[in-house]
Design a protein around this nucleic acid. Structure first.
Lengths: 341, 341
DNA sequence: CTGTTAGCGCTTTCAC
DNA sequence: GTGAAAGCGCTAACAG
């Protein structure tokens, strides 16, 4: 069923039917009812491409999906998508995933912009210096950055307070008497990792403590890397009495390394991990329960969807969109007072 | 830059330029070079909507994304997407995610089909009786099912041999002398869970053993549920000496429950878990290493992309596409001989 | 080998 | 309040 057929069916013009369906005010209320009713009965759906071509709006937002390693081989991504989808659903906006090999990423954004397939894009996992912001601005494709990057170009972003979170967590460990604290972090080129490290260092410095560089490590946020780094830390003498870990996934590996070293989590070694709140990994049911800095990545996705709509529909200026979310510290069983030496 | 401009720039008609760009054979090779070169120089990209409207092809395939809990907001999903993307990338095919609330799922498929936004869709996590197959067939929207469902309607599917995998795993445990084996499975409405249970039962029966229903459990495939079910199993007397677990995520919880019960994995209790091969969860680096039935969900995604293209481009008949992948049993440290009673 | 001419299905002036 | 007509940017017969 296409508009033309529907119109002739009703003995009306395409124009009127289109107007009725799209809620234009100048349509007779009775006519509108008839049109609506007929549309429903015939299960009429406007053709997306035709509508887009006519309006210039794509009704979709884009995400570039790097198919190779390490970018988003983690569950963070899908949680974010779920949140985003939750919001976009309301306006029947689709998410277009454009697969890309890591090296062609910028070219893919270019293709998205020029192809008119999307109205805006979302940028995730920014690095400290991120070329994408400049490119998209130049291309005139609206976007919201999830995270932050250093750039003089005004743009919309939403981030969590990584610096504050790890500062708080470190301070908590210091208050418990820990003096040798290890940091197991994501890759340094990512802004969030740098921010967390800054928070960590600031807390130690404020306490008059030097950072022991042997206890600062970065890597992919996997179970395996968590295990390896922790094993290395625990082999040092003296070893750290507490760990700050950038992801729950890494904390799983860290936990195993602690056990493998014959130590007990929450007594011999304390741990605080960052929790993005995955439905399948609940710090409350771990044994011992895991102390965390918590911020739902799904909620962030939802809010980013919201901001995108404000950008697109209400024409809100990107530079007015800067949201920094506070991060909660949840103290559970994996943290305890520093053991005596 | 649009086609029209590019054409007048070159002193050619739109048609010729279009043909040159789309690789039609009847274009003079020299002309084609000129056109290509000009297109590159001006960074010309055909408008996706216009092309779609003209050709009727969308250049995208759809996935319905259930935004609420428990469907597949788990990492399985993103791995599959990555594999799919890897293949679709080659033909510049996009993936359109249509967010939906669980209950509106069928309506969303309908919308996708009628809206012409996608050329085909992918169906994941089928239930034993799955209405989607009938709906899509009726709507005439091509699809490939990842998994299997009971249906008399001919359709394309790719699945792993879940029955065989769990039969094999169970048999292996039996050969090691285990007699009380627990099954920790996904939700029974899903075909894969039913198939795994069937394989498990068949192996026990072939061995002349009755299935102890107290040792068969189903639930969401999360760490938490894995923990709970295992704790319950281990509280039974006599308790199981081996566990078959449907996901690595659940096995993490199972592992914790085993430790919490003061038992040792691989000695007091053996475990085989199904591994979808996530880059962030490596059975080889666990302690002890985890025995698994292994099949890469990412490889499946890639192959589904391939099949989709055959369906769409080469016009392959859906009913000729039935792939059942064998599953490898990888014996590692988490399995050992049954302990003496 | 190239150009002319219709559309694809919808929205949107501009008249009435 | 409704309709006629002109596109949106591209592809695809059909001629030549």
């Amino acid at each position: 069923m296409k508009l033309k057929e529907l119109a002739s069916h009703l003995g009306l013009s395409q124009t009127t039917v289109s107007r009725a369906l799209n809620g234009y005010p100048e349509v007779n209320e009775e006519t509108r009812q008839r049109v609506m009713e007929a549309a429903r009965r015939h299960d009429y759906r406007p053709n997306a491409s035709a509508r887009r071509l006519a309006t210039g709006r794509a009704g979709a937002i884009g995400i570039v999906l790097p198919t190779d390693r390490n970018m988003l081989l983690d569950p963070h991504y899908i949680e974010f998508q779920a949140g985003l989808g939750e919001r976009l659903l309301r306006d029947e906006i689709d998410i277009v995933l454009s697969p890309t090999k890591g090296s062609d990423e910028l070219a893919t954004y270019r293709r998205m912009a020029l192809g008119g397939r999307v109205d805006a894009v979302i940028l995730s996992s920014p690095t400290v210096v991120d070329e994408r912001v400049g490119l998209l601005t130049e291309l005139g494709l609206p976007f919201v950055l999830h995270g932050r990057t250093e750039s003089h170009i005004p743009h919309a972003w939403l981030d969590i307070d990584n610096e504050g979170a790890f500062h708080h967590a470190t301070k908590h460990l210091l208050d418990l008497g820990h003096r040798r604290i290890g940091l197991i972090n994501g890759e340094t080129r990512h802004t969030f990792a740098r921010d967390r490290e800054n928070g960590f260092r600031r807390a130690l410095n404020a306490h008059g403590l030097a950072v022991d560089e042997a206890f600062v490590a970065n890597g992919l946020m996997t179970d395996e890397i968590g295990y390896r780094i922790t094993a290395r830390f625990l082999a040092e003498r003296p070893r750290p009495t507490a760990l700050l870990v950038s992801s729950m996934m890494m904390s799983l590996g860290a936990f195993r390394a602690i056990r493998a070293a014959g130590l007990e989590l929450g007594r011999d070694v304390s741990m605080i991990a960052h929790d993005d709140v995955f439905p399948f990994l609940n710090p409350d049911v771990m044994v011992p329960t895991m102390s965390t800095t918590r911020s739902s990545i799904r909620a962030a996705g939802k809010r980013v969807g919201e901001l995108l709509m404000e950008l697109l529909v209400e024409g809100r200026a990107p530079e007015t969109i800067h949201e920094l979310w506070p991060v909660e510290l949840v103290v559970r069983g994996s943290t305890g007072p520093a053991p005596r030496d």
